[in-house]
């Protein structure tokens, strides 16, 4: 079943000199429930804009975004906010944990925008989620007392605490060393698979991208499927080949 569907999505922004910058061109993408999609692309290719549109944080200049069987085009801002809160979990490159709040408070934060039992039992739910990511001993720690890997695990717990149907990870290992990044990605894959949520990962890292079942490349606003085997093969050789993906080399 298709969870999110982008149909001919384009995004343009007006620059200060009144010229237009095209960020996305006629992007079509379907993400199914439980799917795992990776999108690679060089800096400035529009990856984050695409992720924001998928996460209902931004709206397209043209085209349509369907969430489930509803078009989001005409939805009011408040409804979009609530839909995003209930269905989407974000994992950011820089973790974006709330400073001064403990790990438990950070994980409980999304539940404070829920209603019913999720709201009133938010601390217990957050504690269980932290336990799931192996941080039950760090619940009272502030973000600046946690290592990078631990912070990202807290961020993963936060993204999953409301049982979202879609997890959007923007360079989730970008601020971590290779080993820590790998363990964080394993955890993210694991908990996403457990909850049956779809996972869309944006990354520069081919190893991270390779964890997905479907792979896309975004180049100057155009989204195309990519065969990572070629990219891997190229990356193990000379430098020009290592930048194959970034330069948009043919598949």
């Amino acid at each position: 079943m298709t969870l999110v569907s982008l149909r001919g999505v384009a995004k343009q922004v007006l620059l200060p000199d009144d010229s237009r910058l095209d960020i996305l061109h006629a992007v079509d993408l379907d993400v199914d429930a439980g799917d795992h999609v990776s999108i690679v692309g060089r800096s400035g290719s529009g990856k984050t804009t695409l992720l924001n549109i998928l996460g209902l944080l931004d709206s397209p200049s043209a085209g349509d975004v369907w969430f489930g069987d509803e078009s989001t085009l005409t939805m009011r801002a408040g409804r979009l906010d609530r839909m995003r809160g209930a269905n989407v979990g974000f994992v950011f490159q820089q973790f974006n944990l709330l400073a001064g709040r403990t790990a438990l408070e950070n994980v409980a934060m999304p539940l404070s925008y829920a209603s019913g039992a999720s709201f009133w039992k938010r601390d217990a739910l957050a504690a269980a989620m932290l336990d799931r990511v192996g941080l039950s001993h760090r619940m009272s720690s502030l973000p600046d007392r946690l290592s990078g890997g631990e912070q990202q695990r807290v961020a993963i717990a936060r993204a999953l605490v409301r049982n979202p149907r879609l997890i959007l990870a923007d360079e989730p290992t970008g601020a971590l060393d290779v080993e820590t990044g790998a363990s964080v990605m394993s955890l993210l894959d694991e908990v996403a698979a457990e909850s049956g949520a779809a996972l869309v990962t944006i990354t520069h890292d081919l190893h991270v991208a390779a964890r997905a079942r479907r792979h896309y490349r975004l180049d100057t606003g155009v989204l195309q499927p990519v065969d990572l085997d070629h990219a891997f093969a190229a990356s193990t050789h000379a430098e020009p080949a290592a930048t194959a993906i970034e330069s948009g080399a043919p598949e």
Partner: peptide
Amino acid sequence: IREIGVRRSFGATSGR
């Protein structure tokens, strides 16, 4: 501002 952005991305409405 960043904190507000994070909260908004996790479902906080502008009214909230």
